[in-house]
Design a protein around this nucleic acid. Structure first.
Lengths: 205, 205, 205, 205
DNA sequence: CATGAATGAGAATTCATTCAT
DNA sequence: TATGAATGAATTCTCATTCAT
């Protein structure tokens, strides 16, 4: 307890952990999971491979955490919006808008929800992430239905469709942003319109 | 001269090709591309690895064909529906319905539109498939807009959202069919409703 | 004996053998041993792979024979020249000249004396070929020494040097014909001069 | 911080690299390139296959380096001799002598100038080596011709013949040393005599 | 007897994980 | 304790040879 080096070391330890996570995320954003062998993560983080196994039991665990962190923040934002004292349809629009804007601003995040995970354990986390994302919307839709703001509908199906709709629009081959570098706002508006109409929300709110 | 090209042999040859394709598809459906190394495909098909290279120039080519076959038929069906002499909203519903029903009936198909490809060459084919799928819907939406059956909207965005919506609903983690094995018809109805509302079509047609 | 098809079949059989040898030689001349897998030889010869194994115990045996035939003729020519009733130095010049001219005229033969054989058994034949080539010259040098036309010298060493000298000049990286497509006759003259001087023969004969 | 780059480790690392090169050279000297699959090199060097790829980007690169090292030193020696303040014919004799003596002393070197390379990249290096070797002699011959010590001759052809002559004499099937393990000095003398006579140099110098 | 589909050992290369230093 | 050298199983692909038809 009175060890003089203990706090310093712990700080450094924690710092290394962050640097590893950061490096891993960076490499994946650059070129996918394939671009992130352990040795590359290690050198990008400025640590040894041994360090990585000091902090994470396996490569899969490291990337599960990378994905988890990437998603956690998004979910928090969506949840905050979902809790705002606004009409459901307004919150829905704000939630979709927020997600799409963030995805358009920084690449690599939306990507994580679709692309090649390779590692079974990591894939599970991706599935979980999509599920969490869906749940935010399902709860919001439920509230809207109860309050009569939205027409009756299958909540799970609608939530899944919502998530599918805007992720595909963002990263799919038909993603308008790929076909022609158009106005981001136009895309945001198109996706929001689609989603709101889809769940029967009033668009004018 | 002698036994030149016995019909039996040709049959077996063709049979092997099919068995390889089938085995490959099965393994991928089970556990993804990573579950399908060449050796596993070979043994699942009951042939040697060499056989695979007799029929396909490379592993990538094999899986491109697996994906291509999975998609080809779907596209044809959707196009046929899109050409029917019906109101656009009716064709839209029938197209989504057809796709969803087929996906629910046979596993592995819808999967092919989402899953992790890893191999660049294979990924290209997947992208192409999604694009084709999207184009069928975009054309239909365009017709609907021109004829005044659908409100003005961003065609590319709407098409992408449509494809994303129903594929996610089918294979995503929130896919209702996964949460609880419910009535398929209910799911079909939910997805169709979502999609038709989303593009502003009349649901009662 | 009275079988009506026997002679015909034997003819065809022999014809196939020749076609296989010819096809094998052609493929090697084109792109080396690597360019001549059994299946390629078979299809170039218009026969089945099984046929090849009917005529040759193994791929190596086939190519041993290919090489052997290619060399046999050269050796015969050199031996004929070596047997001519001329002064030794004259015969030497004529022998070197003949070899170099033939090599310059048709590519692929000289190649066989140097290049990549890969198959141990085939390599042995290549070695034997070089040995035979050397022996023709050794005998000639021996005669020249005995008759006093050539100064005393180590016959084996001189013969080996001779073979090495003109093959390198023909196929090596310094082969003048590669650096600049010069007059073939000039090269013939240069090589002959080198060889005759080397063994102490009179050049003016 | 801690054990950063222990000298011991670096020594071992470097040692492994050398052992790999050495093992590769040994295997090739024994039985040619085909006798040296990566696994064989690894086990001969007492390391894993992975180690080899830690030190060399590919098998071809490893063998390029094997060949390069084998040649580099020889060229340096020949160049040093070629620069000595002696009559050209004297330097020529010393150069040939040096090469032949070294080849007789250590096996595997002369071999490298002739043998079957198979790998295109490796072959390129062999070609380069022979070219360099030839150039040393060509320059020397050029000087001799200019100074009147040597009769006029085709420099490229003579240089190529020289290289071919002594390499063949050393490794070819007629190499005297193979037929009967004779006195090495006798062979040196025979080859030198051949070469000097060939270019018209005075032997008595 | 001829065919050519089928075999399967073997080759090069990668990379998560461990452990001697 | 930290390092990064070392491991070796796993992967894709080739091709000489065989044998059912």
């Amino acid at each position: 307890m009175a060890y003089k080096r203990s706090p310093l070391m712990e700080e450094r330890l924690a710092g290394n952990r962050q640097r590893i996570l950061h490096a891993a995320r960076g490499l994946v954003a650059e070129g996918g999971y394939r671009n992130a062998p352990i040795t590359a993560v290690a050198s990008a983080a400025g640590v040894s491979t041994g360090q990585i196994y000091r902090h994470f039991p396996s490569k899969a665990d490291l990337f599960v955490e990378v994905l988890h962190h990437a998603v956690e923040h998004e979910i928090a934002i969506l949840r905050a919006i979902a809790a705002e004292p606004l009409p459901v349809s307004r919150r829905l629009r704000r939630a979709v808008e927020a997600f799409v804007r963030r995805a358009l601003a920084g690449p690599g995040l939306a990507w994580a929800f679709i692309a090649e995970p390779v590692e079974a354990e990591v894939d599970d986390e991706r599935i979980r992430a999509r599920r969490l994302l869906g749940e935010v919307f399902r709860d919001l839709l439920a509230e809207g239905m109860v309050k009569g703001e939205l027409p009756p509908q299958d909540l799970d199906a609608s939530a899944a469709c919502l998530v599918g709709a805007y992720t595909e629009a963002l990263v799919g081959p038909l993603a308008p942003s790929r076909e022609s570098p158009r106005d981001g706002e136009q895309l945001v508006e198109a996706i929001c319109g689609f989603c709101l109409r889809a769940v029967g929300a009033r668009l004018d709110e």
